[in-house]
Design a protein around this nucleic acid. Structure first.
Lengths: 141, 141
DNA sequence: CTTGCTCCTCTAGCCACTAGAGGATGTACC
DNA sequence: GGTACATCCTCTAGTGGCTAGAGGAGCAAG
C-alpha cells in the first residue's frame, strides 16, 4: 500500500520531533523524501522504519556518525556484521566507562550531602569538599 | 607572600586549560585578574583556589550556573548552606537518574553484543535490535 | 472568506568549551 | 644587540545534536 504521511505524522509515529527530522535530512542521515505539489515532505513506511532505527540508536547513546555507519550496514545485509559488532562493543565499553565515572562521582556527592550538617557555609561539607584541592587530576565524567 | 603567576602556570597548577580559564573570565565565573605592564594576567593564590574549586565542581558534573551559585555561597561563609545542600542533592538525584538510564542502556547493548553471532548483517542482532520499533517511547539517556 | 493548523526556509542560540589566526611580549642563548 | 622560541594577547568560528523563532505559504473546516 505504501501510503505516505506528512512530517508531523512521521514525527508522531517515530517519536522524533519535526525539526529533528528535518535536521537529519540536512546532515544526510535521512534521504530527502519526495514532496507534494505544495512542497511538503512525504514519508513512506521505509522512511518511518529508518527514523525509528535512528531514534532507537540515539536512545542507546550512539553518535550520529556511528548511526550513519550502522544504517549503511543495514542497507547491505549480505556483508559481514563485524563492523556493527565492533561499533556496538566500542559503545558498550564507553558506556561502562561512563557508568564507572558516574558511580565514583555519585559516591563523592553522597558523602558531601550526608556529611553536611546544614549549618553555616563555613562548616558546610559540600563547599568544603569542592574547595579541597588535594585531589587527583582525573578526567571530567 | 601572595606571589602571582601567569596564566600558563595557573593552568598547570589548577588543571584547567589556558583557554578555559580565559573563557571562565569571559562568562564571569572568575574575576578578571590584574595584569602586568605587558598586559598579561596574573593570578594569586586565591584565584588558584577558586580555579581548583571550579575544576572539582565541573569534574563532579555541576553545571556552570550551579557553580556560580556555589562560589557566591563560598564567598559568604556566614550564610546558611541550605542552598548548597539543595544544589548538591538535586545534582545527586540527577546523577542517580543518569546512572539508572545508563545501566538500562548497558543491559540492552550487552544483549545486542552477546547475541550477535557475527555472520552476515541479515542475521545480526545488533542491527536487528536497532531496527525493532516495538519499543516504548522513553527518553534519551 | 476567514480562522487556525500544519508546513516551508532560514538564521541564530544552547552548553562548555576548543581550535586557529595573527600579533605582542618575555626569556635564553650567542 | 640579535634572534629563536615559548608564552601570552584578542578575536572569530567551530564542535554535537539539536531547539527556538521569524516570516511566510498551503490547506481543511465552518
Amino acid at each position: 500500500m505504501m501510503q505516505s504521511v506528512p512530517i508531523g505524522e512521521a514525527a508522531r509515529q517515530s517519536g522524533v520531533k519535526v525539526p529533528t527530522i528535518r535536521y537529519y535530512e540536512q546532515i544526510g542521515l535521512l534521504a530527502a523524501p519526495p514532496r507534494t505539489e505544495g512542497n511538503r515532505r512525504l514519508y513512506d513506511a521505509a522512511d518511518l522504519r529508518r527514523l525509528a532505527f535512528i531514534r532507537h540508536a540515539r536512545e542507546l547513546g550512539f553518535e550520529v556518525e556511528a548511526i550513519r555507519t550502522l544504517l549503511t550496514l543495514q542497507d547491505n545485509p549480505n556483508q559481514s556484521c563485524a563492523t556493527a559488532d565492533a561499533i556496538a562493543k566500542a559503545h558498550l565499553a564507553e558506556v561502562d566507562h561512563r557508568i564507572a565515572s558516574l558511580m565514583a562521582l555519585r559516591a563523592e556527592l553522597e558523602r558531601m550531602v550526608t556529611e553536611c550538617a546544614c549549618g553555616r557555609v563555613a562548616e558546610c561539607r559540600v563547599i568544603e569538599t569542592l574547595s579541597d584541592h588535594t585531589h587527583h587530576h582525573g578526567k571530567l565524567a
